[in-house]
């Protein structure tokens, strides 16, 4: 389809001398996706820069092909490394849209899985499971979170190996049908690629997702609240600032996800605080998260002075 449209355009007149890449960006609506990414994800400047670079490459490649310049189907498989809650899934979703709009994949959906979705429990169980997932993902992007769990160094007969082999085969032979994104913690992914050079060689783009800074997390918190028609009081905001600093030092910190969880608990406390006190409640009260809603968190237990 894509091909015939293009040939009709160039067939009607002599090939144009110059190409407006910016117009290309606008006409494929890739710019819309990039703008959307800017709006929905705070910070992440290096990630966004990489996405723009990749989009630029793909647009140029597309134009080159249209002009008849030699180019083979590019490898588009990627790895997204970074800590939990740094926006990997959201970016993968937008990446699927970009690839779709540029015609590199036919459908543009994202199928997000982990080891359990691919690897079976007994002999003969893994291949059908992996194939089932691959079939669902055909025409779109397969996002494998914590991909390193597929490989268990300590167990040679682990069924994960079977899934890996099928994946590698599809990643090589069906590049126009499917894009695979492997995701997980940076160090563990490095180790995974060292043990499975087959994957490394098939990955075209590595994107590293840095942790959010404290001010970025604050901004995320505010936009999450705003989306649910809540806001911080001045004292509430100050309390949450100290919450972010304290939470970061604790185990299992997962960036934006930790913020979302913290806000959910704050809303719970906020609701109960008004139930426990007598008297009417104003609309503004219903919207405002105050310091006590934040400070009751267990995160502060080790810092009694702040309480």
């Amino acid at each position: 389809m894509e091909g015939s449209e293009i040939s009709m355009e160039s067939g009607s007149s002599a090939p144009p001398e110059t190409i407006d890449l910016r117009r290309e960006l606008a006409e494929t609506h890739v710019q819309d996706v990039l703008d959307q990414l800017d709006r929905e994800l705070v910070g992440l400047a290096p990630v966004k820069k990489r996405i723009r670079q990749i989009a630029a490459l793909l647009i140029v490649d597309r134009v080159r092909r249209r002009m008849g310049l030699e180019s083979e189907t590019p490898t588009l498989h990627m790895s997204f490394t970074g800590n939990p809650g740094t926006g990997k899934t959201t970016v993968a979703l937008r990446m699927a849209q970009i690839l779709h709009k540029l015609g590199y994949i036919r459908k543009g959906h994202l199928v997000s899985v982990t080891r359990d979705d691919l690897v079976g429990q007994y002999i003969g169980h893994t291949a059908p499971k992996t194939k089932e997932i691959l079939k669902k993902a055909m025409g779109g992007v397969l996002f494998i979170d914590e991909a390193y769990y597929l490989y268990r160094q300590e167990n040679e007969r682990d069924y994960g190996q079977e899934a890996i082999e099928i994946l590698l085969q599809v990643m090589e032979n069906q590049r126009e049908d499917l894009v695979v994104i492997l995701a997980g913690y940076a160090e563990r992914m490095d180790q995974f690629f060292r043990s499975n050079p087959g994957f490394r060689s098939r990955i075209a783009h590595h994107i590293d997702f840095p942790d959010y800074t404290d001010p970025e997390l604050m901004q995320i918190a505010k936009s999450m609240l705003a989306a649910q028609s809540y806001k911080f009081s001045e004292a509430g905001e100050a309390a949450f600032e100290s919450y972010i600093a304290a939470r970061r030092k604790q185990p299992l910190f997962s960036n934006a996800r930790s913020i979302r969880n913290a806000l959910d608990r704050a809303r719970l406390r906020h609701a109960n605080r008004y139930f426990e006190q007598d008297g009417p409640v104003s609309l503004d009260d219903l919207m405002t998260i105050d310091a006590p809603d934040v400070l009751a968190s267990r995160v502060f237990d080790s810092h009694p002075s702040e309480k």
Binding site: R106, K107, H109, P128, K131, L134, K135, K136, M138, G139, G140, Q174, D177, L178
Partner: peptide, 17 residues
């Protein structure tokens, strides 16, 4: 040949089978 394919989005999946 296996179960009906209910959840696929792209014919590439059918061609594999």
């Amino acid at each position: 040949w296996d179960l009906p394919m209910f959840d696929v989005k792209d014919a590439a999946a059918v061609m594999i089978e």
